[in-house]
Simulated scan of single mutants.
Amino acid sequence: MSNRQFDIVREDMHRRYDHMCPPEMVDRVLDETISESVERARIGSFMTVMVEREATDRLEQEVAQGRAMDRRRKELLFVCRRNAGRSQLASALTRWLVGNRIMVRSVGLEPAEGVDPTVVQVLRERGISTRELYQKTIIPRTVHTSDVVVLMGVDEVPGVPGLRYVRWDIDDPEGEPVGRVRVIADEVERHIRGLLEELGVLGKTAA
């Protein structure tokens, strides 16, 4: 793997985090992640993707735990059963609406094999990036206290820390035709806009 491939990741990480973290922190976290990933790597072709994801997790934790420059951002955690449809829609739409002004995660209690392709299609139709969509299960290292934990199609409250838990009654897009998934995406966006307005990170929608 060439150094240039990691240079591209480094440039992207600085572009995303230099306004929140000292540049030397970004470099340190990335250097540590690269070193650890190279040592345990089995499949080199996926190295840059894994390094970017791991470094993103670590930098988000630095920000959330107050070790970066900015005051702590509010954090939303979207939880569904498989982390394939609703929670992925919610996380992508939130990033699209407010960017880095809020910290967003999505996890699944029982992650499926891959993000629903129709969900990806609907997001791309709207010009919303799907680059950061990948599946996660709930593990202690990546889940810290969220301001709001949004439960989507999950009856039980999972063992994750949150200051507040809310349930959204939104249909699962799995197996649905693209037209129906578009409607579900609209519903998810309405819920997100209301929550973001309540949290003070999005201006009120005009009546």
Rank of each mutant, 00 (worst) to 15 (best):
N83H: 06
D171Q: 08
R86L: 14
A90V: 03
T94W: 06
R58C: 06
A68Q: 07
I138P: 05
V166L: 13
A207H: 02
P111V: 06
R73D: 01
S91I: 04
R124V: 11
W168C: 09
N100H: 13
V51G: 13
T48A: 08
A206T: 05
T145D: 09
A68K: 02
P161H: 07
Q88G: 09
H19K: 04
V149A: 15
T48I: 13
L196D: 11
W96G: 00
N3F: 01
A68G: 15
R164K: 14
V51L: 06
R40D: 05
R40H: 10
L199S: 04
V26W: 02
M13Q: 11
R164L: 07
A68R: 10
D27L: 04
V115H: 07
H144G: 09
I139T: 15
I128L: 14
T137Y: 03
A68M: 06
V122T: 10
V166W: 06
T56E: 05
E36N: 10
E132W: 14
Q61G: 04
E197D: 11
I184L: 09
Q88L: 06
R182T: 10
A207F: 01
L151W: 04
D27K: 03
R190G: 13
L76G: 04
A112M: 06
F46R: 08
Y165T: 08
I8Y: 02
G162M: 05
V181K: 08
T94G: 11
E110H: 12
L133T: 04
R82A: 15
Q121S: 14
E110M: 11
H19Q: 04
D155F: 00
E110Q: 15
S35A: 12
E197W: 01
I102F: 02
L199R: 09
V149D: 05
A55S: 12
M25V: 11
L151R: 10
